[in-house]
Design a protein around this nucleic acid. Structure first.
Lengths: 184, 184
DNA sequence: CCGCTCATGTAACTGGTTACATGATTTA
DNA sequence: TAAATCATGTAACCAGTTACATGAGCGG
């Protein structure tokens, strides 16, 4: 939230909120019950300042980042970065793959096929995003967008390879509900 | 947690907990205050069953997944998978890159260099993991490990390219704390 | 006997989500 | 004038984290 207020210049909580709501990433929902309280905490802590800004009869508060808030943003950004950020990036799809053995072989194939197809679709979307002039013009936006493209390309290639390996030599797994393999 | 109980066969909450504690992924900390309550909920819901298992004077409860729990696991795994899982995978590093403009040019370069170096280190670790026989032998483990390798390779390549672009033509940004660009 | 691991929990704190509540302004 | 958007919040609920508390078994 602090970063968004910094980037969007003086802006309302509503605008910051929609940065999350419009984002394809589901990490944070951007619910009002989260954004308004966090802005209150940031203001009380002196990291942002609110300017009253009335348009007609409607009142709104526009937030700006204070020097103290900027310093905090710098510390948050790093360097140094905490280890957990530099480690293997989380992927909910990869997590589920750990439990692939709980599905029948045909279900496994169907799951991988669905994920790969959806991945290609998403890839087309983010590639189009990367080509948009307002994204391509900004250094940071371009880096972020190309990172999303790279992550999706890697995922699609990984899924394709996994699917090929699965289909290639389908080890006969006895029917019976896919019991977990006994750890010897 | 349900998936771990399924995969590890009859196992204690302690074992399930350490699956999170030992994992490099920080998505869930595996704190006792989370794992024990969730196992209680799973048991009350009939998704897992506990077998009392006393070793000497020490008592412990070993959990197993019930048929109902297995059905639930299958539904959770999909197909179909929810959209947010199939979208661009989250990456805390990518998120921070959105705010790279808040750093001075030299700090930006330092940050990217640090991330790239750490990425290569991590890559060596997960590649070694992938080669371990017990990982290579299991279909799911191999898929997960190769997914981690693919994600990290993509990230390192992305960072290297971003760094080259940054260093290549360093646009003169006036000193003064890196004010956000006015959105015109 | 000291320290580590195995093993199980609880309680306070924190904070995100869901759902609700309100009202002005713009647009079809 | 109806619907959508702009705009701000609150309260109950849920659940993860932190920190604490306890005790058995085992290796040095």
């Amino acid at each position: 939230v602090l970063g968004i207020i910094w980037r969007r210049g003086p802006c309302t909580a509503y605008v910051a909120r929609h940065e999350f709501l419009d984002s394809p990433s589901p990490y944070w929902s951007g619910s009002a019950g989260a954004v308004y309280p966090v802005l209150g905490r940031l203001e009380r802590g002196g990291w942002v300042r609110a300017q009253a800004h009335a348009t007609g009869r409607r009142e709104s508060r526009r937030y700006v980042v204070t020097p103290r808030g900027r310093a905090m943003l710098g510390r948050w950004l790093g360097p140094p970065l905490p280890d957990w950020i530099l480690g293997v990036p989380p992927d909910p799809l990869r997590t589920r793959m750990s439990f692939l053995g709980a599905l029948s072989t045909s279900q496994q194939a169907r799951l991988l096929a669905e994920a790969e197809r959806a991945g290609r679709e998403q890839l087309a979307l983010v590639r189009a995003e990367l080509k948009r002039p307002e994204i391509a013009a900004d250094r940071c936006d371009r880096i972020v967008a190309s990172g999303a493209v790279a992550a999706l390309e890697a995922r699609v290639a990984w899924l394709a390879e996994s699917r090929a390996r699965l289909g290639g030599r389908a080890t006969a797994r006895k029917p019976g509900g896919g019991r977990p393999p006994r750890s010897g």
